[in-house]
Design a protein around this nucleic acid. Structure first.
Lengths: 258, 258
DNA sequence: CGGTCCGTCTTGTCCGGACAATGTGACCTC
DNA sequence: GAGGTCACATTGTCCGGACAAGACGGACCG
């Protein structure tokens, strides 16, 4: 009965089928959004194809339209779908890389198959200087934890990491720091990382930095300063890091919210 | 009649007042979210203070609870509010910098009061090589626009910018490129920028780069490669840029979506 | 005094419906 | 044939209600 022929989201044998389990404790909208995301990821929903209108989709699944909209909206926020009033909802054309987690050097190296290792150079407490106090939003002179680490890949130095944390937030054990990344330790301590403000620059290596990182004096180094916040807006970490430019580059994705 | 005393969002003279205009074409939830955001921005809602429960807020404004929730949710997504079941919704503790737009060097310099200027070195079309084709998702050898620019601040060079764009997307006039940034031109051409994938690294300047940027050979340079996508997922620009590390650093904010 | 249970508060999820806004395509008119 | 007009399809906004889930405080009991 459709007056208009539309490019439907069809597989080889009909429309992609979704289903929800009402006995599951997982919210219905979340079940649906995961199935949609998986279908997009696996190419079952081709880029550019229309999803079919919300009301019919809701009826087919036995859900209400608000629930279906909530599922779709979460994927729109992720950049996987585009809604167009009067047209429909379609899959974006290019495969979108995932929004990229707050990059952890340890995880980055591990994912690249580089077998990261860590040498803890310092694990103590100190008084916050002006820069650290401003970054963490605490008083100058307040006690903070200070960790300095050398991160290695394949036995060669990649970066020198210096981190300051508010006192009492987490107890950092040197043995743990040698075996995993700082963010993993914080997450397993119940801290939910939420956002980070970063500044990335470059400069020439000093003699000391060169010795530490096995680079000649004057070699280009990548520098990053980062303040990380948890979900309540507290600053939970301030890092001041130096990377060998010959061994590392940052990759990340920015989303624009208009 | 409240059995519990809660830290309310109070000003000097009672709770902050909001109001909506039903005759306005602006959606109600958007009116409310803007007023909430402004109140947070101006400190009228103190960090950590509770917002008051949704049902009462809805009743006070003459709105339904879903509408109020939609307004609140948009601010939660922005990282300005935190919801806690059984507790309430509260303002995050630290002032959050805005999510940071897709950084435009031109806008960055202008915002810093640096009076940016642009010298267009090249404005032509060419065939996409393998790297450009892969980044833009087009065929190798396809026609692309190519622009090379030197960006100056206070008359001194800051960066060398090379951009490739799919053919036919936008007509770039050299005169316009000298006067504003590429992103502004694209936006005013009706292209809605959505996300970008970036890689930032560093390296030592070659002789030619040094001459172009007024740096000695071997000076540290910041490099960035960026592919920008519009809201349908099309790649609309691939940039390969080189910055003087002594004059520029990237600042940006990353959001973690759990 | 301490631990457990329970009630209450708040957000989370879900439903069904209604009307508005907008883009598309077909139809009609000139 | 060209242009404007109109109906239709689809998402956008908004409402009112219902129950569930989690968190906190206080009462109760050992």
């Amino acid at each position: 009965m459709g007056k208009r022929d539309t490019e439907q989201a069809l597989g080889a044998d009909g429309p992609v089928q979704f289903s929800v389990d009402r006995s599951s404790p997982v919210p219905l909208y979340f079940q649906l959004s995961q199935q949609l995301e998986a279908a997009i990821e696996h190419g079952k929903l081709a880029p550019g194809s229309l999803l079919g209108n919300e009301i019919e989709l809701a009826g087919r699944l036995g859900l209400s339209r608000p629930t279906v909209r909530q599922a779709i909206q979460s994927l729109v926020d992720k950049g996987l779908l585009v809604r167009r009033r009067g047209i429909g909802t379609q899959v974006v054309h290019s495969q979108v890389k995932r929004p990229l987690e707050l990059s952890s050097l340890y995880d980055d190296l591990e994912a690249a198959g580089q077998k990261p290792a860590t040498r803890v150079l310092l694990n103590t407490t100190t008084e916050a200087d002006a820069e650290v106090a401003a970054a963490l939003g605490i008083a100058e002179g307040a006690e903070v934890a200070l960790v300095e680490r050398l991160r290695l890949a394949h036995g060669e130095p990649v970066a020198h990491l210096r981190n300051h944390l508010p006192a009492g937030l987490i107890e950092l054990k040197t043995a743990e720091l040698e075996e995993t990344g700082l963010y993993r330790l914080m997450r397993s301590a119940g801290i939910t990382l939420h956002s980070a403000r970063q500044a990335v620059g470059a400069r020439a290596a000093t003699v000391e930095e060169g010795e530490r990182l096995d680079e000649p004096e004057g070699a280009p180094l990548l520098t990053m300063q980062r303040t990380t916040f948890d979900d309540t807006g507290r600053a939970v970490e301030f890092g001041s890091h130096v990377y060998r430019a010959s061994r590392y580059a940052f990759e990340f994705q920015l989303l624009v919210r208009p």
